[in-house]
């Protein structure tokens, strides 16, 4: 159980039996009055945002969330399948739940899958992932609008800009938080 004074950015609570994360909150307290907490919350299952104002007397149940190390196996018909590295149980996430993380999901990649009441609802990628360049056009010098970089396509289908010396068949490290090129894998 939490009460309103525990509210913080990042706190995960249960509202109408669904897990929400506090993404923003403002504390205020009119003179001699009660503390008020105006919160923006994101539903951790469907991503829908919610505005709520809580008072000092309000309390919340904590959401039963658990993170488990899993390995990406394959995707099929809009679902992404993972295997729990401890129990070897398999779980699936929908394309919406995976979101942009699909750009980095290669076979055997280890990720943290978030479970709510035992059901998978999302995943956290490692900060850096090494990916193979599957298509790179030769760099046309002087043709460049965005400076000294060119677009390439990776094995996951993700397209990003890299330095001109990156060629097809090379592996590069990508920062999954920004989606940007970090370095060439030696």
């Amino acid at each position: 159980m939490y009460n309103a004074s525990n509210l913080r950015k990042g706190l995960k609570i249960l509202i109408d039996k669904e897990p929400y994360v506090v993404v923003d909150f403002q504390f205020t307290k009119p003179g001699k009055g009660q503390a008020l907490y105006r919160c923006k919350l994101r539903n951790m299952i469907n991503g829908i945002m919610l505005d709520r104002t809580y008072r000092s007397v309000d309390s919340f149940e904590s959401a039963n969330l658990e993170q488990r190390k899993m390995q990406f196996l394959y995707s099929q018909e809009g679902h992404f399948h993972f295997m729990d590295l401890q129990s070897y149980d398999q779980s699936a996430l929908s394309a919406e739940q995976v979101g942009d993380a699909k750009n980095y999901l290669i076979d055997n990649l280890e990720v943290d899958v978030l479970l709510f009441d035992g059901r998978p609802i999302g995943l956290t990628l490692p900060n850096f992932v090494d990916l193979l360049v599957t298509r790179a056009d030769p760099w046309a010098k002087g043709d460049s609008v965005a400076g000294d970089s060119k677009p390439v396509t990776l094995e996951t289908g993700y397209t990003l800009r890299v330095p001109p010396f990156i060629e097809e068949g090379i592996k590069i490290t990508v920062d999954t938080r920004t989606g940007e090129y970090v370095t060439r894998v030696k």
């Binding site: 009119p30 009055g33 009660q34 008020l36 105006r38 104002t53 008072r55």
Partner: peptide, 11 residues
Amino acid sequence: RFDEILAYEIE
């Protein structure tokens, strides 16, 4: 709702 109205609608 006195405090809430004061804080968000009046102040």
